[in-house]
Design a protein around this nucleic acid. Structure first.
Lengths: 222, 222
DNA sequence: TCTTGCTTTACGGTTTCCCGTAAGGAATAC
DNA sequence: GTATTCCTTACGGGAAACCGTAAAGCAAGA
């Protein structure tokens, strides 16, 4: 049995159009689409109120900022808010992001039902995913189905990312204490910063800061 | 007067679908689409041979690699090859890339006729771009039309990127000479490497390597 | 108040990096 | 052959980063 009501949250108009087309091909007539996360959340609330809740949310992860300031700024926050409001809502993420770590986190922390990567055969995949999820299954790319290979992972705290972002902005290590004090961030001693960086490098097996910055950029940590 | 024959080179199926839809809305009946650059080039050659050349190429910039090994690996190479074959061909780039430096280079070096960024109203923009280019105009995003503000730019040589990539891979600076000698890359002295890095940082106004790595990651230089 | 345990900071010695200067080497011109 | 020029490398002093250890701060409990 296919979905009744589907909400599409996707900021790229062109992508939104083709998702709608795929939805239409599956004879889903009650679909709605928005370009901003806040709109998506509002629609979900409203649909609940009039007792016609959506049964699927298809959402992108990254939404571009523009003049329209949003409370909910990305797909992750939208999914959280949506699930708070309507725990039973199924969620299909449709994003260009391809890093396993990101997708793993979505599955584990947010309990999403499917993931389709924007790539060569994404329209076909989208259709397959919709069919699978409609049958109560999950849909994830092949590489996700295999056991999560152990990789060097490290939970970056906001303290960590602050330091790393400062470094990446060209602040010298020994200048960082001053910056931290200005913002009342507490371990502000140079020694603490050194230790922290050392710990991170150690856990991840890195030998210099350059490698760490590259890693953080690749995984969009900063 | 609208285009007669349009070729769409875009690897994301979903995006390709909506570009085709936009093309169709403009009553262009002879459009063709491909998912690989090599295919695009082959179509252009073939169309020329049978004396029915395309008059517009709409292409993405980045194409994802897969099992299908391509000679032409990205949009830039495709545009170059296409213009070599058919100098009068008009080109509209449709890409998510948003860095001014990249777009400037396309305009200057490849003489593209339009650029639409994959973003919120990209479908509408695409339509506007098509109409403009059909009238012999150029179409670029607003921020491009204003004079190119002087920014710190630097042409990275392959030597530069090699060094930076080694750093980002966790190789220590003083270990780099060994790596360069192994690959017969010629200024291999530690001093040359230091000088080179110093020059790059200087030109770009950076104060440490971390900042440089962040920059290179942001601009996809490594 | 005085422990106890934990976190943060301070302080050195060592290594690495930074950067200016000078020496070496190769190519070209005279 | 020897100047000239340009590029590369070697060297050395100073700055920054690295890292272990010890001292100081701080919170909670006896």
């Amino acid at each position: 049995m296919m979905f009744e009501r589907v909400l599409i949250a996707e900021d790229q108009e062109s992508t939104s159009i083709s998702v709608r087309k795929t939805i239409g091909d599956l004879n889903i007539v009650n679909s709605d689409y928005v370009f901003y996360c806040d709109d998506a959340f509002a629609r979900i609330q409203k649909a609940l109120k009039i007792n016609q809740p959506f049964d699927l949310l298809i959402t992108d992860l990254s939404f571009e900022e523009d003049h329209n300031i949003q409370k909910i700024i990305d797909g992750v926050a939208l999914i959280k808010a949506a699930k708070d409001e309507q725990p039973g809502l199924k969620v299909l993420v449709f994003s260009a992001e391809g890093k396993s770590a990101v997708i793993d986190a979505l599955i584990k922390d947010l309990g999403i039902d499917g993931y389709v990567r924007k790539a060569r055969h994404d329209a076909k995949e989208l259709r397959s995913a919709l069919e699978a999820i409609a049958q109560g299954k999950k849909y994830f790319p092949a590489q996700m189905k295999m056991p999560v290979k152990e990789r060097n992972t490290y939970d970056f705290t906001s303290y960590d990312t602050t330091i790393i972002a400062l470094l990446a902005a060209g602040i010298k290590q020994k200048e960082i204490p001053g910056y931290l004090q200005n913002q009342d961030i507490k371990p502000s001693g140079l020694s603490s910063i050194e230790k922290r960086l050392n710990l991170i490098r150690d856990v991840l097996g890195f030998s210099n800061n350059e490698q760490l910055i590259a890693y953080c950029k690749d995984f969009k940590i900063i």
